[in-house]
Simulated assay, not measured.
Amino acid sequence: MGKDAKAKESGGKGKGKQAASGSDENASKGKGKGAKGGDGLGTCTYVKARHILCEKQGKINEAYKKLQDGWLSNGDKVPPAEFAKVAQEYSECPSGKKGGDLGWFPRGKMAGPFQEVAFNTPVGVTSAPFKSTHGYHIILSEGRKN
């Protein structure tokens, strides 16, 4: 299976999700059992990711809008260095000082919704904002391995 085939398969779960502006498909795509198909998502043991964490939904939406205006609205992937700048500006997590870098973490280390999104977001793709027990997040997936 080539790179283009993977992009088409994950289009509704990654890039397509980004381009949608607030539609209900954001809430369902890229999460749950539907994302664990033959594309390898959800099957790896470790993920490398950056994130932005905000207590208030309005603030995470501002951060996401900044990412949309710069890259996502054009269908582009957010470069990690640019995501890091937005994380430093908006994230309320201590990792924000490091550009939101969480490094490599194993399955089972992060709480429910965060783990679900992190392990089901294709490498290089930025998730839509979502809520966890800690607040509102945006994740940039940087790598995956077993």
Rank of each mutant, 00 (worst) to 15 (best):
K6W: 15
K6M: 11
K6H: 15
G11P: 00
G12A: 11
G12N: 10
K13L: 09
K13F: 07
G14V: 03
G14K: 02
K15Y: 03
K15T: 11
K15M: 09
G16R: 06
G16T: 05
G16F: 08
K17D: 10
Q18I: 05
Q18K: 04
A20W: 10
G22W: 04
G22E: 07
G22N: 09
D24F: 14
D24A: 13
D24Y: 09
D24Q: 14
E25D: 10
N26S: 13
A27M: 13
A27S: 14
S28P: 00
K33G: 14
K33P: 11
G34C: 07
G34L: 08
G34F: 05
D39R: 15
G40A: 10
T43I: 02
C44M: 03
T45P: 00
Y46P: 00
R50V: 02
I52D: 04
L53C: 02
L53S: 04
E55W: 10
K56A: 15
K59R: 14
K59P: 04
K59W: 04
I60S: 11
N61I: 07
N61C: 06
K66N: 08
L67C: 05
D69S: 13
G70C: 05
W71A: 09
G75P: 04
K77C: 00
K77S: 10
P79F: 03
P80H: 10
P80T: 13
P80K: 05
A84V: 06
A84K: 02
Q88W: 03
Q88K: 15
E89L: 07
Y90M: 14
C93Y: 12
P94E: 06
S95Y: 12
G96M: 03
K97F: 02
G100N: 12
D101F: 02
L102E: 15
G103M: 05
W104C: 03
F105M: 13
P106D: 00
G108Y: 00
K109T: 02
A111H: 01
A111M: 06
G112C: 01
G112N: 08
G112Y: 02
F114V: 11
Q115K: 00
V117R: 10
F119K: 00
P122I: 13
P122G: 08
V125D: 12
T126N: 01
A128G: 03
P129G: 12
P129W: 10
F130A: 04
F130G: 11
K131T: 12
T133W: 01
Y136R: 06
H137S: 08
I138Q: 06
G143P: 13
